[in-house]
Design a protein around this nucleic acid. Sequence first.
DNA 1: CTATATGCAAAGATTTTGCGGCGAA
DNA 2: TTCGCCGCAAAATCTTTGCATATAG
Lengths: 161, 161
Amino acid sequence: MKSQSAEESRIAQLCVEHGLKMTGQRRVIARVLSDADDHPDVEELYRRASALDSRISVATVYRTVRLLEEKGILERRDFGGGRARYEATEGGRHHYHLIDVDNGKVIEFEDPEHEELMRRVAERLGFDFVSMRLELFGKKRPQSQKAAKPATRSSKKGSAE
Amino acid sequence: MKSQSAEESRIAQLCVEHGLKMTGQRRVIARVLSDADDHPDVEELYRRASALDSRISVATVYRTVRLLEEKGILERRDFGGGRARYEATEGGRHHYHLIDVDNGKVIEFEDPEHEELMRRVAERLGFDFVSMRLELFGKKRPQSQKAAKPATRSSKKGSAE
DNA sequence: CTATATGCAAAGATTTTGCGGCGAA
DNA sequence: TTCGCCGCAAAATCTTTGCATATAG
């Protein structure tokens, strides 16, 4: 969802700043991550990366997301379903996730005062705030339309939201 | 959290209320869960349950926690490390978790106004609040000795907390 | 040139499931 | 008696790793 240009993607730049070698594969994965505005799991990242360059293996995707997570460039999410999902770390404001318990859809929302609140909590407990994870689960309020689909717990091929 | 008596554990009672058969194994697992004041993973639950009754298999533990989670009796947590951890759903106030990024220790904290805040967020987005998950990651502040010591307990490396 | 990365496949780790037998209600 | 539950082990997932080769810096 960002610059489709030929220049380095935002995440590729971060990789360089962190002293990582920019191989072809890594550059492609970085671009996929930079362009994503959802929360793809490894399988989905692999699919998207493969579409751009077929010389990429899943192992590399796993190694890359792991590395980027360690560097703080990526954040891992768990929305249930057993697979880790990733999204780029944001610089300033964070956003959180509301998961529709009926269909697993993820809605992002912001809450500016939230992080400040958590910083204070951390401080009160004697910690420096590093990051946070907030997931809200809700049921769509039945005001206007469609009946909720059964809460399918085993979405094998959900890909991303 | 601690009725070591011969009567049904709190969770066992909930099982009955939900129409589940109370087999010997299930009763033991229910007791282990009722007595736990940490966040055991399946392996740890299996260990504790086995100590009370050796005729229990891991498969049953997996099946049980899954069932109880579906019934809303248990909540699954993900503190990183790849394994799901469980804790009993609380009736009234909720507590949240602060994870020490340096050693993985988990500290519980409360924040009464928090749930109300989240209820309002959900409402604003057109949802009814179902539940939430909040994990805060922090680094222990080295400086001020007077920093409030966490009034909660923490854990060990391997199995639970 | 050397430290990193990668592919591939095998190994790990965690969780689920098929099936025959058992037991709670 | 009936239907749910259990143990066992195989299988399904998801993720990591050993090793030989390739390549960025």
